[in-house]
Amino acid sequence: MEYLELDIKLNPVSPWDDIIVSQLAELGFESFTNDKTGVKAYGPTADVNMEEVMAQSILGNVPEGLTLSFTQEVIAEQNWNATWEADFEPVFVEDKLTILAPFHDASIAKGMKVEIQPQMSFGTGHHQTTWLMSKALFAEDLQGKRVLDVGSGTGVLAIVAKKLGAGFTMGTDIEEGAVENAIENQGRNDINDITFLLGDIDVVKEDNFDLLLANINKNVLKAHMPTYAALLKSGGKLKLSGFFESDVDELVTIAAQNGFTKEGVLLKEGWAVIQLIKN
């Protein structure tokens, strides 16, 4: 995604740096950096309307006593994570699964081998949540089962499910780059029949799933819960992750309100997976 950078020089800097941040945060900007001369603001080009910014912030209405100037620059999308991705360690999920990059020596793999090149997508197994979700898949009989992976990132969980014998398998992600990457990664693993879709949960037109995987975050999981219930068949399984052990009770309560029974919780270094069954 293309980002717009506003480089804003302020004199005096304080309190105007704080004020401009409070204004731009309501005008499509997501992140900021501060230095001795002012503030840099960053937002997706698509979310920022400079006319609106000029009308509704001190950029266009410079108050008395403040000297302000700014420049804008569009920053093209690129793989900022390339340095890490060029040289990461393989991940072993006990002796069941090894997640490797194309540059690793495949002979070190133990158990199932899955090759992933992430391209700035999430899901290499390094994170505790991916590791736990992968491990949880090995405890299921997935033969011929219908599987949905929401927030599929690199596609790693869908790929593992498919390699464990899953039937119809689908992944969705709101990031275009992630969907492209998941399609590439299934190809790396000689799979061609996982459907990866771009968009939020509402892009899923299939239902009657046996297993739904969602490693996202607490707020999205809470909002999605009724849809997860609608997409799963009775007795179908839901595995949630992307949150801390301290968030488990809150999510289990909401899951129960949506017709799920807790089967168990897996923990690793403070992160959690909740395993649920649809009543």
Partner: peptide, 14 residues
């Protein structure tokens, strides 16, 4: 040192 909206960190700039 950065300022990021809660829940909205992503790999884009900054």
């Amino acid at each position: 040192k950065l300022q990021i909206k809660g829940g909205a960190a992503n790999p884009s700039p900054p």
